[in-house]
């Protein structure tokens, strides 16, 4: 039994070695294996060479690799979907990496957009080249398939482009990610981990605005504070908050994010409490959202009077404390569908 298994393994290894040997030892020198070999060779040599020769040899290595892979994939009819050989797309990927690498010095994901186009050109080459690689007008029955090839690859490229566009939008308007887009007819969210969901950017804005306001209203004479909070002085307070909000927006502005002007910070209600006042700040999200109404975040700050020892004696000064931001997707109240039973 064990002997049989061993025998099998030996046989399998033997076969594998033989295939590898056959791959690397082709019948004629004029084959794709030679090209791959040349590619590896010039790649290895490029390490030994200096300066300009490194670049030249590395380029040679790429060209041998591209030609070798093209040859290998074209000669093998198994690498295909239906009747369409995948060779141009595999070779196209290598050409894209090579070209984009030369132009930009790195490989951005954006290269995906040009990959289908380069592949289409590679796929079209055989029909557009005559004998001795002279350009020619393709045969009549090959012309319409060329139209399908290029248009379909342009559409594929547009899909990639759209993907990057959507990602850009998510960077420019990060609050979209805090919403749900189950109803979308275009896109689907892959990571549905709710706990890792982003907070709307308004929380940052509201927190900053509140802390500025806190600084300005803290440690003031209590009579001044009461003056500020009076209903007839409300205009001034609203203006003050507007100024703070503009300032905060300028401070957190980043060139990538374009949604800050869609957050509107407003003064909410000011109500009396037992030992002071409760001031509410609201941030409305007027940007892209799943609901018709603007989404709302609130933050409430308590302003109370405390006694403070100063040089001239004990005076009544204000103390401001703010709660964390509440509302949309930040601290949603826990809704229990069943009433607790005893």
């Amino acid at each position: 039994m064990i002997r049989k298994i061993l025998n099998n393994i030996v046989n399998w290894v033997n076969n594998l070695l033989r295939t590898i040997f056959e791959i690397f030892n082709p019948d004629t020198a004029f084959s794709w294996q030679t090209l791959i070999g040349l590619s590896v060779f010039s790649w290895a040599m490029s390490f030994l060479a200096t300066n300009l020769f490194t670049i030249i040899l590395a380029s040679f290595s790429w060209w041998f690799l591209i030609l070798g892979v093209y040859w290998a994939t074209t000669s093998n009819k198994d690498i295909s979907i239906g009747k369409i050989l995948l060779s141009p797309w595999i070779t196209g990927a290598l050409v894209t990496i090579y070209i984009v690498g030369i132009v930009t010095g790195e490989l951005p994901a954006y290269a995906l957009v040009i990959w289908p186009l380069i592949s289409a050109i590679i796929a079209a080459l055989p029909t557009c080249l005559g004998e001795n690689f002279k350009p020619k007008i393709p045969d009549r029955d090959k012309r319409q398939p060329l139209v399908w090839l290029f248009t379909s690859q342009l559409i594929l490229s547009s899909w990639f482009q759209f993907y990057f566009l959507v990602q850009d939008w998510l960077v420019q308007y990060p609050t979209i990610a805090a919403d749900t887009f189950e109803k979308s007819a275009f896109v689907v969210r892959l990571s549905t981990d709710e706990s890792r969901q982003r907070l709307p950017r308004g929380t940052t804005i509201l927190d900053l605005v509140a802390s500025r306001l806190e600084e300005q209203l803290n440690n003031q004479e209590w009579s001044d504070i009461e003056q500020i909070l009076l209903l007839r002085e409300r205009e001034q307070l609203i203006e003050q908050i507007d100024q703070i909000a503009t300032q905060v927006r300028q401070e957190i502005a980043s060139p990538d994010i374009k949604e800050d002007n869609l957050w509107k910070v407003r003064l909410g209600e000011i109500s009396l409490r037992e030992s002071g006042y409760n001031l509410e700040l609201k941030a409305f999200w007027e940007g892209p959202r799943s609901q018709t109404q603007a989404n709302l975040l609130t933050k409430s700050c308590q302003i109370i009077s405390v006694n403070r020892q100063t040089d001239i004696g004990i005076s009544l000064v204000s103390q401001v404390e703010c709660d964390p931001v509440e509302g949309w997707r930040v601290a949603e109240p826990i809704v229990t569908s069943q009433s607790p039973t005893l």
């Binding site: 998510l170 960077v171 007819a185 896109v187 982003r198």
Partner: peptide
């Protein structure tokens, strides 16, 4: 660039287009 945790794919778009 894509520092956010959300990966969004235009799958419906592709299916509807086809």
């Amino acid at each position: 660039m894509v520092d956010n945790l959300t990966i969004v794919l235009p799958l419906q778009l592709i299916l509807f287009q086809i």
